[in-house]
Design a protein around this nucleic acid. Structure first.
Lengths: 205, 205
DNA sequence: GTCTATAAGGCGATAGAC
DNA sequence: GTCTATCGCCTTATAGAC
């Protein structure tokens, strides 16, 4: 069939590797990095802890791959959806689209992305350092959109953009804590949140 | 001096106990429950791990006390400030006051409260169960204030109060991640955030 | 009250059989 | 590729000296 033997291209090894990543992401997203033992991950797949080392050199390498997949996923999803907008789309439309894509990435490939976002601060220093670039890249995207909206006069000059950006992302990420129990769709939640931020909650009677 | 010997009323034991709680809260708030070893806590105080057991029966008991103190602190602070308002205070004033008090508790006695809020989900099941009552009590306070504001017509009927409440608390709690680096005061941050939620960010030109 | 010493078990990681 | 077996270290917790 070819020259690739015992590499991730090999179909059996590739499937095992992906199974391990999926199981790890699920456990990490529930119990955090320190709270998840390699024994637990292996047990989920009916395997033994030692077997994981055929696919990954260390627990750090495993979680680093999950972090990278999670961050790439949210960046790619948000960039793709925003770039698909017509050139003359309103800045509010950009923010709604970005918020929807953010929530979609968080709740769709959720185990990877939620691990990356919720437990980043608890990962080993080396892993944090490697993820820093992607994290900063994503924050910068929001920083630029909001700055553009304020420069264009769509956002009031009195609004502190740093507070706004951190509040907005905090709100979106907080959704992780209650989405599964709720009955609202991702689109409804994203639209609700941006509506609140855009027009406020006050009644003008 | 009296009958109290070898109890928390004893001044030396009481001080050690408080030192241990303070050191533990500081480490837990940085590294989480599983990420903090009793050795690390003891080392901070120039002690040995075994000595902690004179004051606490287990690591679980220690973190439960931190959780309880943290939650009581935020509830007491918020209730006190809101109740001090004049009876005819506007509902916006109530929310601004509550937000300020929430941030104050989070950043003042921050190690206890931030441990309670950020790492609640990673604590042992028994500890989570004991903290549940206080957590629910606090969430209910916000639920009631927001419901009252909507019933009175101050918040638009179209606003989903569940989304609003979780977004708002998510925003406030997110402040923990960036407050220390910033130059804004607690009052400024709280006022900024409530202003955003109340009037929105859109410019009416 | 805090120490030393240690028990009992969990952890990440490795070596070699299959 | 996965297993068994094990190493060395770390963890919580206990017992008894001081």
């Amino acid at each position: 069939m070819g020259i690739a033997i015992n590499t991730p291209q090999n179909s059996k090894a590739k499937k095992s590797r992906e199974d391990i990543l999926n199981a790890s992401a699920a456990l990490f997203s529930q119990h955090g990095y320190k709270g998840t033992a390699l024994r637990d991950i292996a047990a989920t797949l009916g395997m033994k802890a030692g077997s994981l080392y055929y696919h990954f050199a260390s627990k750090e390498e495993l979680v680093l791959e999950i972090l990278t997949i999670g961050l790439r996923n949210i960046i790619d999803t948000v960039v793709r959806d925003v770039e698909a907008l017509p050139k003359d789309a309103s800045l509010k439309k950009v923010l709604v689209t970005a918020a929807k894509a953010h929530l979609f990435a968080l709740l769709e490939k959720g185990d990877y992305t939620s691990t990356s976002i919720r437990y980043y601060g608890q990962m080993p220093p080396g892993v944090q350092k490697e993820g820093r670039i992607l994290r900063d890249k994503y924050e910068d995207m929001w920083r630029i959109w909001l700055q553009r909206a304020q420069d264009a006069g769509d956002i009031k000059p009195s609004i502190n953009l740093k507070v706004l950006r951190l509040s907005l992302l905090g709100s979106l990420n907080q959704t992780l804590a209650w989405y599964k129990k709720g009955d609202l769709t991702i689109d409804e939640i994203a639209e609700s949140q941006i509506d609140i931020y855009w027009d406020g909650v006050v009644s003008h009677k």
